[in-house]
């Protein structure tokens, strides 16, 4: 009698403790359900383009004045799963001409916003899967943005635990977006890896 009651108490304890665990898997996000960002380019954008392209994601259009550092256009390279073959079998089928509908191994997506966070949020609207910065290899900043100071950008990027500290941060002479769109026929996704 005593024993059964103790066993019951134990079982109850186990169940009670198991409840918070059973509702688990908060952070489970399969690799194929992540948009693997390989490179980020940051350019300045005029207010018109921003207003035209920005969805009303983080704030209503025109409700915020343009920040001192100016508007931002973020261009991102996202790896296209399935285009990079597993193993050495079909190599280099990507790249090529790189025209529309070609076997691109990466998508290049643009996002506009007043700040980088804004721009990334906007960009997320055009990508179905959550952006994943764990494999981010390079951050290209155009000269124009760099001249305005990168403290803000740097701070933002550093606070994101996904972004590794080893990521290269480079300044491009021209537009960062063009660097993001560069292609070489032999590259698969190796451009920055």
């Amino acid at each position: 009698m005593e024993r059964t009651r103790r066993t019951q108490a134990r079982l109850l304890l186990v169940f009670v403790l198991a409840v918070p665990l059973l509702s688990g898997c908060w952070d489970r996000q399969e690799i194929e359900q992540r948009a693997v960002v390989l490179g980020v380019g940051i350019d300045v954008a005029s207010e018109q383009t921003v207003n035209k392209n920005e969805g009303e994601v983080s704030h209503l259009r025109g409700s915020f004045p343009e920040p001192e550092t100016g508007n931002i256009r973020v261009t991102m390279q996202i790896a296209v799963p399935g285009r990079i073959p597993l193993g050495p079998g079909v190599s280099g089928s990507g790249g090529g001409g790189g025209g529309a509908g070609g076997q691109n191994t990466v998508w290049v997506v643009d996002g506009f916003g007043q700040t980088i966070n804004d721009a990334l949020n906007n960009m997320q609207q055009s990508v179905a899967l959550p952006l994943f910065y764990g494999h981010l290899r390079v951050i290209v900043i155009s000269e124009a943005v760099a001249k305005k100071g990168i403290q803000n950008l740097n701070d933002f990027l550093r606070r994101n635990p996904e972004i590794r500290r080893m990521t290269w941060m480079v300044v491009s002479r021209g537009k960062a977006a063009e660097v993001m769109r560069l292609r070489r026929s032999s590259s698969v996704c190796r451009r920055f890896t």
């Binding site: 489970r28 992540r34 799963p81 990079i84 073959p85 193993g87 764990g134």
Partner: peptide, 18 residues
Amino acid sequence: IAFNPELIPTKFAVAVSG
């Protein structure tokens, strides 16, 4: 695969994802 894909090399990660 489901929590820390940043641990594996990028090429492999993209391939696995494919």
